[in-house]
Design a protein around this nucleic acid. Structure first.
Lengths: 152, 152
DNA sequence: ATACCTGCAAAGTCTTTGCCTTAGG
DNA sequence: CCTAAGGCAAAGACTTTGCAGGTAT
């Protein structure tokens, strides 16, 4: 836990971020909580609430995301996504982090068995899952030499 | 495609929704696009933009979600979630749709191979994925008889 | 005929930015 | 010293709601 914190501090330094109090507090909170958190979760956490501004947390998160130290979860646009729920049809998605293009994954989803196990082990009911793959689509990749794009 | 539309119309009727123009247009658009869409995607779609108000789309989506005809994707609170990106550590999550509790899934993630295949088949680079399980946690389930909750 | 639904517009909530000050390296 | 980072406050963006009139059943 504390090891994680130290690791993060090092990576921030390597990334050229200045070691400020707010940064330290933020990393401390995130490494302790170890779960996805919203800006509000973070900013309202006692440690952060009493030590730095919401805007600072916001900008820190932005920098950490740029440096690849933090990841923003979910379909990226800042808006809710909705999809039809059709009986017997389950879709997984492939999303381009750059242009935001979303397409359905053709391959069968390999998660159903795990879903079953989780239901049994945790007592959760009405279980379903969402699986998204993120990456950079061929059109958004920097033009290199002779890469064959097998699909658009 | 049109079959899907008809199916949806039927389900809406069964759910007690009135068959209004905006509803028809919305279902038409969603069944044609067949991908996750934001409220803005929907409301700004030519068909909907010229035929109904944003607020109407919003309320329709709400009703459809209540009826289980549409699903809202992602971690549900209306806010972005952030998580640490630690080398060699991948986390999948189990989220309670009712209380919003988020915990990490213990079991190893079964998706890596598929991820590999997708990278090869689509030409996407820098691929990663997010997998979330949603359901109702034991504490949020209506108290029934003698269910053993094997974990909290 | 009535309850549900729509459109318009305003209010709310969370996010994002400007600007000046502070402080890390 | 110089420039990145912080704090405060205002502006933005998307979502959500109130209300009055329309319409499916």
């Amino acid at each position: 836990m504390d090891q994680v914190y130290e690791h993060l501090i090092v990576r921030c330094k390597e990334s050229g971020l200045r070691r400020t109090k707010p940064l330290e507090f933020l990393l401390q909170v995130m490494s302790q909580e170890n779960r996805p958190m919203t800006l509000a979760d973070l900013a309202e956490h006692p440690v952060l609430a009493s030590n730095c501004d919401k805007a600072t947390v916001f900008r820190l998160i932005g920098r950490l995301t740029d440096k690849g130290i933090v990841r923003r979860l979910g379909l990226h646009e800042r808006a809710a996504y909705f999809t039809l729920l059709l009986p017997g049809r389950h879709q997984d998605f492939l999303i381009c982090s750059s242009c935001g293009d979303i397409k359905a994954v053709k391959a069968p989803c390999p998660v159903h068995q795990l879903e079953q196990e989780i239901a049994e082990q945790t007592g959760y009911s009405g279980l379903y899952h969402e699986l998204e793959f993120f990456g950079t689509c061929p059109s958004c990749q920097p033009p290199s030499d002779t890469r064959h794009s097998l699909s658009a």
